[in-house]
Amino acid sequence: MTTQSVAVGPSRRKRKRFQFTDRHLPLLLLFPSVVIIVLVIGFPMLYSLYISFTNFNLTNPKVIEFIGFQNYITLLTRDSQFWKAFGRTVLFITLAVNIELILGLGIAQMMARLARGKGLARTLMMMPMMFAPILVGFQFKWFFDAQLGLVNNILYSITGQSQLIPWLIKVPLGFISILVAEIWMSTPFMVIILEAGILSLPTEPFEAAEVDGASGWQKFRLLTLPMIMPFIYTAMAIRSLDLARAFDVVSIMTGGGPANRTELIWTYVNRLAFNGKEFALGAAMSFIAVILSLVFTYMFFNNVLKSRWTEEVEL
């Protein structure tokens, strides 16, 4: 007893006793989830980060040696294929996001103006999103097949020329083919977000513009567009994140080939880490790809904050 009283001491007795309040309850309830998320996501991420600094190779799994930044240096300074895949991925994201935006904006404008059949139109428009990306890949692989594909058959029916166009093989047709598949699959997402933005706009500025004699284009350029910019940037941020990890469709249609002609970062990661058994290099490349995603996300979300519409917009 004596020991206990000495250990507690007068200063500890003065401390405020912890009180469990309603404020603490959410923390307690969230704690197990946080622990599980840390273990399921945090631990594997940290482990793969560690792997990226080793020479771990699946053909020799007993040997794991720490080699510092060697994998990153190899990728950034010696692997020309990596830079090509990186550049192609940036181009892929840029083109896909912008084309989807233009198409999405146009379709969303039309959808917002539909007086009848809106529900049916929305359902039809959302159909591409209902397909698994792998199915979309197979579908477009068949569309662009040189011998049995739909596109060449249509061209043959229209023009009568029997020259087989190897869409998935030739440069830049292979790249364009996977771009088309990706755009077809994901434009509906843009439409949903942008239509929601358009429908949420106040009507007063448009009525005022109408009274002032503004044309349709002026109303779109000077009112609609500035006011839905936060929606546009949010949609672009989400899509660029999606595209930065594009894999399924590309993998099925071309596998990144032939001769690396359609290789994107994630098909290259797959080829290196799983087919080539270079797990550590694959992990390093994955982290570089994550940085790419972060750059695009930061860029777009930064613009979301800047573009929030306020009452100060000049009409």
Binding site: R17, F18, Q19, F20, T21, D22, H24, L28, F31, P32, V35, I36, L39
Partner: peptide, 20 residues
Amino acid sequence: QKRVSRRDFLKVVSLTGGAA
């Protein structure tokens, strides 16, 4: 509000976390 000592609170949290 319920009066729960910090020690008891930490016990609950560490038991839950430890089990997870």
